[in-house]
């Protein structure tokens, strides 16, 4: 359902709508036969409002009660915009007036002409444009020509055995134990489970 149809559907009891404004395509929801009647009525309605304006009267709404009970409601929204609606006998006139105003406003803004923008399901690679700054080749970094010299160590402080951390002595002890353990590996050991 189009936006126009949705907006018109808000008017309960509406039988048909005709919206005319100079420079815009007419909106017409009447059947072909009714549309002919309405277009002839449009000329009369324009004269009603035109004559009222000529005597400095600001009449902008006319409601015709027809023989069969229907209402023919006409609004003049500006100098060239006329809205004609055919409704059932009992309708909420203030609601019809305000809704018609909203529809006419959207119509004049061209909101009913716009088609919803179609979204492409996928984007082909060839259509992708890579920004120039992302398409540049990485620059090569120049080699450093300066060779740094390694200075000879002049002041070397020897650390005496007692001041050492004891790492070597612990290693020697450990190696000695490993040697002993290696010698003992020839003997068979049996696992007797966790000791309690």
């Amino acid at each position: 359902m189009s936006n126009l149809a949705k907006d018109l559907a808000k008017i309960t009891g509406l039988k048909g709508a005709f919206l005319h404004s100079d420079g815009h395509p007419d909106i017409d929801t009447f059947s072909a036969k009714e549309a002919h009647e309405i277009s002839s009525v449009l000329d009369f309605v324009e004269q009603y409002f035109s004559v009222a304006e000529s005597i400095n009267r600001s009449f902008n709404e006319m409601i015709f009660s027809l023989e069969n009970g229907d209402n023919l409601i006409t609004y003049l929204f500006d100098e060239s915009t006329i809205f004609i609606l055919r409704t059932e006998q009992k309708v909420n006139f203030p609601f019809v007036r305000m809704t018609s105003k909203i529809i006419a406003k959207k119509y004049l803004k061209g909101e009913y002409d716009r088609q919803p923008q179609k979204i492409k399901p996928s984007i082909a690679y060839k259509d992708v444009v890579i920004p120039e700054h992302l398409n540049q080749q990485p620059k090569t970094v120049p080699l450093v020509k300066e060779v740094l010299s390694i200075e000879k160590a002049t002041n070397i402080t020897s650390i005496e055995e007692p001041k050492r951390s004891g790492f070597l002595s612990r290693m020697k002890k450990a190696l000695g134990n490993d040697e002993k353990a290696a010698d003992d590996s020839s003997s068979t050991k049996t696992y007797s489970g966790p000791q309690t």
Binding site: S40, R57, N60, I63, F64, S65, E67
Partner: peptide, 25 residues
């Protein structure tokens, strides 16, 4: 007078009543 003309020239039928409104009127 125009009411008579509309009734004759269109197929809307007889118009029993016309209500005319306007801001400040």
């Amino acid at each position: 007078g125009m009411n008579e003309t509309i009734t004759e020239q269109s197929e809307l039928g007889v118009i029993n009543r016309i209500v005319i409104k306007g801001p400040g009127e």
